[in-house]
Design a protein around this nucleic acid. Structure first.
Length: 463
RNA sequence: GCGGCCAUGGUGUAAUGGUCAACACAAGAGAUUGUGGCUCUCUUGAUCCGGGUUCGAUUCCCGGUGGUCGCCCCA
């Protein structure tokens, strides 16, 4: 697929043909697998972003922003040529300078690239990054899977100590705790490339006698990606797995030691985990520790349920031609987390709802209103309005729907008098006050209210 | 990449091989001058796209597009 894409010069006539197929009256539609994250969902997204950021900063990770577009070989070299991600899911195309570029399917490779490119091994090690942003994979969309999806991730370069692995797992676990989604940590070690390949040889020869009886998918796996046999869902294969060689038995001493230490550290901080000998990760660059965050309960049984995952990638920087540098990191799937939050009915307001509404009558009032707005903004009080409407009635209707406590009414008469009306929306009581004092009066009224009702956090219901 | 199901106003639904595609909510305007919540009136607005069958398709068929769910894979 990608081969087809790279050399293909876009032929204008083809484009025309495609355009011609579109009906002239047709309105633009989303591309399959892409979506708009609407205002109603932003409360959850803010929660996710804020939580990641607060946690990353608390553990002194530095923010890094990485480009969405990279040379396509960056991913081919790191993720692995024969992985599905690279083989059939990458958005690869030729840019106007005739370079093969790809929309990033993940960010770790870019982080490693940035580490090398900016000579970060000259900085005090380890170098700790965090990032968030969209990733792209041309996969078939389904529950919890989009072609543009968002990940936040933390990466640590330049430290091979097991404590790093453990701390990353801890941070991930804390993240899910903070956000209100309990998760189980699953962990495994896939050792070094050397012991892994020895293990693979063993695994393949274990399965070979049964080859003809394996289901089609697993035959393919046996040939292409034998590690994947370990999490086959086929009954026949699962039956064979009981006696299959275990990767942990094939780890060299150093790998074993590393894994043991990671686990000890986790015990130390009382992070529960599940050893999952079948946990393998889909990217070639992983070494040693691999882990995933699975939602607790029956959610964990569903497809696409992993909310995050990561592992150690000691070979990655070397693979890209940098001085061999160990690394470890993980990413969380923000879309899946947002979905899990929605399933639990969690939807915080996207921004503090306005408590004050400004209703205006006539141009003079509008003009004064502009200034008034600035005063309220300076005072940190959000004010709502419906400047597009003229009738006071219509404006009050909006104020009512917004559920504000106070409405300021400013008409011709008030502008001339230098006054303004404050209407209490609850009682309907109104008072006319000196316009110059409006901010302080409103402040006082709002304080009185919030003094009685402590922090209203009424979750906005979903649409 | 493979398979199942699905596609009607902004949202949720209804209906039909043949008058004007119905209802609710939302939205907009209004019920005499500058006052919201209830009520009433009116208005805007839809059969995803293309082809076929047919006198006639929104309805049946095919293809595309999109959604959804599962497999593969993955976050």
């Amino acid at each position: 697929m990608q081969k087809k894409l790279i050399p293909k010069k876009s032929k204008p006539e083809e484009l025309d043909e495609e355009d011609a197929k579109k009906p002239a009256k047709g309105t633009p539609e989303l591309l399959r697998g892409f979506r708009d994250i609407l205002p109603e969902e932003q409360g959850r997204w803010n929660l996710i972003r804020d939580t990641v950021r607060a946690l990353a900063e608390a553990y002194s990770f530095d923010r890094i922003d990485l480009p969405v577009l990279e040379r396509s070989d960056l991913f081919q070299r790191t993720i692995g040529k024969s992985t599905d991600i690279v083989e059939k899911e990458m958005y690869v195309f030729t840019d106007p300078s005739n370079r093969s570029v790809a929309l990033r399917p993940e960010a770790t490779a870019s982080a490693a690239r940035a580490y090398i490119e900016h000579g970060m091994l000259e900085r005090p090690q380890p170098v700790k990054f965090w990032y968030e942003g969209p990733m792209f994979r041309h996969d078939r969309p389904q529950a919890g899977r989009y072609r543009q999806f968002y990940q936040a991730g933390l990466e640590v370069f330049g430290a091979e100590e097991p404590i790093i692995d453990a701390q990353l797992i801890l941070i991930g676990k804390k993240f899910f705790e903070a956000i209100g989604l309990p998760v189980k940590v699953q962990i495994n070690s896939i050792g070094t490339p050397e012991c892994r390949s020895a293990y693979l040889t063993e695994l393949v020869s274990y399965f070979r006698p049964f080859r003809s009886k394996l289901p089609e998918d697993d035959k393919r796996r046996l040939q292409k990606n034998p590690l994947r046999l370990l999490d086959s869902k086929e009954e026949y294969t699962m039956g064979l797995l009981g006696d299959a060689p275990q990767i942990l038995d094939w780890l060299d001493e150093k790998s074993k030691e590393h894994f043991m230490r990671v686990i000890e550290f986790l015990d130390e901080v009382e992070i529960p985990y599940e050893l999952n000998a079948h946990l393998v990760r889909g990217l070639d660059y992983y070494t040693h520790t691999v882990f995933e965050f699975m939602p607790e309960g029956e959610e964990g049984e569903k497809a696409q349920s992993a909310l995050g995952g990561g592992g150690r990638y000691d070979g990655l920087v070397g693979l890209l031609g940098g001085r061999p540098t160990p690394g470890c990191g993980f990413a969380i799937g923000m879309d899946r987390i947002a979905r899990a939050l929605a399933d639990k009915g969690i939807n915080p307001p996207q921004c503090p709802p306005a408590q004050v509404f400004f209703a205006q009558l006539g141009d003079a009032a509008r003009r004064v209103g502009l200034r008034l707005y600035e005063q309220f903004r300076a005072a940190g009080i959000p004010v709502a309005e419906a400047a597009g409407k003229n009738a006071l009635k219509a404006q009050l209707e909006v104020a009512n729907k917004l559920g504000v406590g106070l409405t300021l009414i400013l008409g011709q008469k008030e502008v001339l008098d230098g006054t303004i009306i404050i209407r209490d929306m609850e009682s309907g009581a109104q008072e006319t006050i000196d316009a110059s004092k409006v901010v302080s009066v409103v402040e006082r009224k709002l304080q009185k209210e919030s003094g009685v009702t402590p922090a209203i956090h009424s979750p906005v219901s979903d649409v």
